[in-house]
């Protein structure tokens, strides 16, 4: 759980935002460059200081101008994945990963992170021998292994060519599920946000211009209305970043899973994820035949 209400003036620019993120949710922050996205997460990480306001993570006050609380960045337990990765050039990947290691109440297992992010083959290399996508995965792993209470990601895909984005994107959702971390994901790319986030806020000129649920608050929809069905993983497509599931209703396309093909999954189809289409469209969209039985107005 994250509550933010901060103001920060930098020259003529004024940032003034307030929002909350549930635990286990990914909040996308988007907006034009120079709108204050990076400033905002620097404030959360403690690398910059708000002029006034309040920041609370998991009930712990990190900053409060009224009571004079300002926890140092090294004490905030905020995992920060920087746009430019910032891997330490004089250390191997393994040393980079272990750098922020600490034994906390929510200890994150080294081997688990390594296998999740597929880093085994990279451990002994130095950052300059890594591709952009590999660096980014190491940066994510390093932030995770410091056992953070919240993860901040600043345009993690900005320096990666489009074909490689599918290398990272599925991981982000996986992180939320595997480690129950709230994630603030800064991006200006609409397709990334749609693939990754439950909610999005749009910042323009330092203010929240729009706050909209990307998947109509998927978590909520899942619990309220929808259907459950059993599906089997048929194939993975690493190019599109999708997995194909076989279900009694037909083939379903979902963000890439990491279980091997053949694994049986329980799938929840949120009511809001179902969208009627007039005719069959091509592309990676799951289209199921359906017939309207009743309609209810609310």
């Amino acid at each position: 759980m994250l509550h933010v209400d901060v103001r920060r003036r930098l020259g003529a620019f004024q940032l003034d935002v307030s929002f909350s993120v549930d635990a286990h949710a990914i909040l996308a922050v988007h907006g034009p460059s120079g709108s204050g996205k990076t400033t905002l997460i620097n404030l959360l990480a403690g690398l910059d200081r708000p002029d006034s306001g309040r920041i609370v993570v998991d009930g712990r006050v990190l900053f409060d101008s009224k009571s004079g609380v300002d926890v140092k960045p090294e004490k905030r337990r905020v995992g920060y994945v920087f746009q430019d990765c910032r891997l330490f050039p004089h250390m191997t990947v393994a040393s980079n990963l272990r750098y922020g290691r600490r034994r906390g109440e929510r200890d994150i297992d080294f081997e688990q992170v390594v296998s999740l992010l597929d880093l085994q083959a990279l451990l002994r290399r130095r950052p300059r021998f890594l591709s952009g996508g590999e660096k980014q995965r190491v940066a994510i792993g390093r932030a995770l292994l410091s056992s953070p209470r919240i993860l901040l990601m600043d345009e993690p895909l900005a320096s990666i060519d489009p074909g490689r984005k599918s290398e990272i994107l599925p991981f982000v959702r996986l992180l939320r599920d595997a480690f129950a971390l709230p994630i603030v994901y800064v991006s200006h790319a609409a397709d990334e946000i749609a693939q990754v986030a439950e909610r999005a806020i749009r910042i323009e000129n330092g203010r929240i211009a729009a706050a909209d649920p990307v998947r109509s608050s998927a978590d909520q929809a899942y619990t309220e209305t929808g259907m459950r069905l059993i599906a089997v993983i048929e194939a993975h497509d690493s190019v599109s970043g999708l997995s194909v599931l076989g279900s009694p209703l037909g083939q379903l396309y979902v963000p890439r899973r990491f279980e091997p093909p053949g694994t049986v999954l329980q799938v929840t189809l949120g009511a809001s994820a179902v969208e009627p289409v007039a005719e069959v469209v091509s592309g990676a969209i799951s289209v199921l035949p359906a017939r309207m039985i009743t309609g209810t107005r609310t």
């Binding site: 004490k75 750098y99 922020g100």
Partner: peptide, 15 residues
Amino acid sequence: VDRRLEAAARTLGRG
């Protein structure tokens, strides 16, 4: 020295 590396180290909990 790239001071952004030092900032990164701080977010990783080092003094």
